[in-house]
C-alpha cells in the first residue's frame, strides 16, 4: 500500500489514535482512585481544620479515618452541613464561596455549638496574589478566626486594617486584622464570611432546635 494513499492515511490515523487512546485509558484507570481520594482528602482536611482539629503530619488514610470518626454530614433544608465533634463539643461547618480579587475563594466556615462564636475558617481553593492576598491561607490569619465572637447584627465579623503583623489576639471583639497591602482580598474575605453567616446561621439555629427535640 502506498504511504500517501487515502486508505493508508485513514488506517494509520485510526490505529495510532486507538493505541494512544488505549494508553490514556489505562493511565486514567490506574490513577483515578488516587486522584479522587486526594481531592476528597483536601476537603476533609479543610473541614477538620476549620473546626479546629489539626491534621498536620497525618497520612491520607489517617485523615480519612479521623474524618469518618469526627464528622457527620447532614442535609438540612437543601444545604450540606458538617457536624464536627471537637473537644469543646460540636461545631457546624459548611462550604461557602465568594468572589476574591482574581478568582473565587472557596472556604469552609465553622461555627461552634452555641452559634455565637466561630470555630474557625479554612480555604480549599483561592487564587489571590501570592505573598499578598494569598496570605489568607497562612495560619496566623486563619487562627484569628478561631473562637472569634460573632456579632449580633451584620456585619458579624469585621476584617480591619491594623499595624500588627501577627493578627488580632482579642477573640471577643468580633474583629480580625486585615492583611496589609491586600485590602481588596481582606474585604473579599470579610464579605464572604458575613454573607455565609447571614445565610447559614438561621439554618443552623433551626437545625439545632430540631436536634434538641
Amino acid at each position: 500500500m502506498r504511504k500517501d494513499s487515502p486508505l493508508y492515511t485513514i488506517l494509520f490515523a485510526f490505529i495510532i489514535s486507538a493505541l494512544f487512546a488505549l494508553l490514556l485509558g489505562a493511565v486514567n484507570a490506574a490513577t483515578r482512585d488516587t486522584i479522587l481520594l486526594k481531592q476528597k482528602i483536601v476537603e476533609e482536611k479543610a473541614i477538620l481544620e476549620a473546626a479546629g482539629i489539626s491534621t498536620v503530619g497525618m497520612s491520607d488514610v489517617e485523615v480519612d479515618t479521623l474524618f469518618r470518626e469526627k464528622v457527620k454530614t447532614v442535609e438540612y433544608s437543601q444545604k450540606t452541613i458538617y457536624l464536627v465533634k471537637t473537644d469543646k463539643g460540636q461545631a457546624f461547618a459548611f462550604k461557602y464561596s465568594g468572589p476574591g480579587l482574581w478568582g473565587t475563594i472557596y472556604a469552609i466556615i465553622a461555627v461552634d455549638e452555641s452559634l455565637t462564636r466561630l470555630a474557625g475558617i479554612s480555604f480549599t481553593k483561592q487564587s489571590e496574589t501570592p505573598g499578598l492576598g494569598g496570605r489568607i491561607d497562612e495560619s496566623w490569619f486563619k487562627m484569628q478566626f478561631r473562637g472569634e465572637t460573632i456579632h449580633d447584627t451584620y456585619p458579624f465579623i469585621k476584617v480591619q486594617k491594623s499595624s500588627r503583623t501577627s493578627g488580632d489576639p482579642d477573640h471577643t471583639n468580633a474583629s480580625v486584622d486585615a492583611i496589609t497591602g491586600a485590602t481588596q482580598t481582606s474585604n473579599a474575605v470579610e464579605k464572604l464570611i458575613n454573607e455565609g453567616l447571614k445565610e447559614y446561621i438561621p439554618i443552623l439555629k433551626a437545625l439545632k432546635a430540631g436536634e434538641m427535640v
Binding site: F20, L23, L24, V27, T31, T34, I35, K38, Q39, V42
Partner: peptide, 18 residues
Amino acid sequence: VIASYVIVFDLILKAYLP
C-alpha cells in the same frame, strides 16, 4: 503523541503531587 504524554504526566501529578 505530545498531547497523550502531557495528559499522562498531568494525571500522575494530580495523583501523587496534588
